[in-house]
Nucleic acid binder design. Structure first.
Lengths: 381, 381
DNA sequence: CCAGTTTGCGAGAACGATCTCGCACTGGTG
DNA sequence: CACCAGTGCGAGATCGTTCTCGCAAACTGG
């Protein structure tokens, strides 16, 4: 990459010191410096600034003035080491963009944490279980007070067990982890998916396509893989149940499982559209797949919401703004983040609460990407 | 919000201890525990695990086995305090979604940092200068080794000066900060914008609309506000220069400055389209504005790339996938993040390097949202 | 066989905060 | 005047590491 570099000024290091005292420009002042300047001991200075213990009001004032003059800022590391609380939580997450989960939940977590005086150490696992293990370990070494984890697909959860061992609580978000006694904040993806199918059927759709993202699959397959991330699993089950309840025949259910690669998912969409009796609507398990539908449909000059219908999971600004608006199963992503922080902090303050799985409801936002086939029939007659 | 709660199991606390030693289940083992078990002193244990100093190979093995058996994990807090390095950098950023800057750059920074053994403490300022001040202060108290900051619009940079005081380096990203001697990684938004106008003009566009987001403006105005974020400022200048170079009359340049609110920006778009001689193309300074164009055009049954053209800044997956694809001024967001981390770590390792402003080039990705008016003219004739 | 070097290890001092303890001083009371 | 409670403050321990220093044992060579 070509880079244009502009040197603005060679740093001349003319820094305005907070006080006339230039003797120690290098190291930032400690509480000893404050104490010396105020003419008291370390202990008294600490009491004065921490407002605890027995101390004369006049001394407090003197110490505070000294601290102010020196520009004293406490070393949170030392403080944390002494009192055993870092006021920091670790976030182990999978940074993927299209689903607008990572960014929304991260913002919610960071903001909610700050509201309670906590900072967030963030790590990305890229859906790799080994990286996740290391990330958890590193965060624990950094002495975080608790962890929020989007668990990656894995069979081995030893590292999460070890996490408990340190006595520090963990909250799982977005995905369930069966057989693990942790609190999890998830969404009711089963009901959401079921509901979406019901909606489509009410608009006259009878041949349904399901485009399911599956990390464990290579390329594309019609065979349902044994392993699915819990969210995708639940969506799949919900779609299935919706179709079953409406009495849709198996031959009118077009299932495709495919890896999260543009090429694969676009091929999958194409294969759906090329079938003899193609589906009139495609349900996608995430936004990557939905974008593939948009792309392939666009290339074929098919109009979404007329020639082919679409429903996906997770709302986004573009889904609302484009024409036609995309009908989505919206999940309360910010609520997940906020709840996770609140419960984590509650668990930190008061450990030993019973674990539970909190399931937040989803909302179907009906826009125009699902055609009303009754209306179409009426129109064409 | 209604919540379905499912208590999975009341934690029965049957934790498998890493060793038969049950005497101290509460506190995680320290190096003293390891030393005791290995029958050596603290110092020797530290040497064995840290692989430094003079130590017998047999002792190393004994200590390592003890550490393994106890499940010893070093306390990074204590370590950091002793050696004065936390291996943590602070990220002060504005979490906004539509521009796909926050999430992409965050991922890049987190990943690049991890590559070098660093963790990232993240804070959100919501474009508020006072919050930014506090965030920087908190991060410095947490003893981060350096800071990466997306500076919020402000006149007061005292807190950034104070940051230097602690001797810890800062990297600015995304936005320039004039008059401040910091290294900044930004993009060539001027050239990018100029180039985009040139492209449009080459396709026959002569009446140009510019929709500029301006935080300091209330609602909508045609008056250019005195204060613009540097990125938006540069884009504005670039648009202006492109129009000037092509000899576009002032009366054919339709400028609108508006706050970052859907209502305002949609009103702004409407007012552009309602003019007597409306622009054939709208350049937007960010994706919020672009989505407003999509929405209003959709409501009016105008087709993007035919009835009205559109160019915006920052590429995204949806801009590539929808029909028509949106022509964008793509910025190397990941490169910004990576470079920022690299230079920050370099500055941490070897302080006193000259500051400079690094300007990364943008790329115009031409898709179909810009109509070829020559072709149109040809077609309609 | 002894002086000198090398080797392995432990005692103790940091890092910067908090917190317990007890000392000295004040002032009130019998 | 003696006693006691209360007040303000400082000495020192502590959190869990790392690192300097010096000591003793082992090894070397003349």
């Amino acid at each position: 990459m070509q880079v244009r570099r502009v040197t603005v000024r060679s740093r001349k290091c003319e820094v305005i010191l907070p006080d006339e005292d230039v003797t120690q420009a290098a190291h930032s002042p400690t509480i000893v410096d404050v104490a010396t300047r105020a003419g008291v001991s370390r202990a008294t200075a600490s009491r004065a600034l921490g407002h605890y213990g027995r101390i004369a009001p006049a001394t407090i004032k003197r110490v505070e003035q000294a601290a102010e003059a020196l520009g004293y800022r406490p070393n949170e590391l030392a403080r944390a080491m002494r009192i055993g609380i870092t006021k920091t939580i670790g976030l182990v997450i999978i940074t993927d963009f299209t689903n607008a989960f990572f960014d929304r939940v991260t913002k919610a977590i960071v903001d909610e944490a700050k509201l309670h005086g906590y900072q967030v150490l963030i790590t990305n696992t890229d859906e790799d279980s080994e990286i996740e293990r290391q990330a958890v370990e590193t965060l624990l070494e950094k002495q975080v007070d608790g962890l929020i984890v989007v668990p990656s697909l894995s069979k081995n959860y030893d590292h999460l067990g070890a996490a408990k061992l340190g006595g520090r609580p963990i909250m799982l978000i977005d995905r369930r982890l069966d057989n693990l006694p942790f609190t999890a904040i998830i969404t009711d993806d089963f009901a959401g998916a079921q509901n979406a199918v019901r909606h489509a059927i009410s608009l006259g759709h009878k041949r349904l396509g399901f485009l399911i993202s599956a990390a464990s699959v290579e390329n594309v397959t019609a065979q349902r893989p044994a392993e699915l991330v819990s969210t995708v699993f639940d969506r799949t089950e919900g779609f299935l149940r919706g179709a079953f309840d409406a009495g849709i025949k198996r031959s009118d259910q077009h299932w495709i499982f495919c890896e999260d690669e543009p090429k694969s998912s676009e091929a999958a969409v194409a294969s759906l559209l090329d079938r003899p009796n193609p589906p009139t609507i495609i349900f996608t398990s995430n936004n990557d797949m939905a974008l593939a539908v948009l792309k392939v449909a666009g290339n074929r000059r098919l109009t979404i919401g007329r020639d082919i219908s679409l429903v996906t999971v997770d709302d986004s600004q573009w889904a609302a703004a484009i024409v036609p608006g995309i009908t989505v199963i919206a999940r309360p992503v910010e609520e997940i983040g906020r709840l996770a922080v609140q419960r984590l902090l509650s668990e930190i303050a008061d450990p030993g609460q019973p674990t539970e799985i909190v399931v937040l409801p989803t909302t179907l936002i009906a826009r125009d990407s699902v055609a009303n086939l009754y209306l179409e029939g009426f129109r064409s007659s």
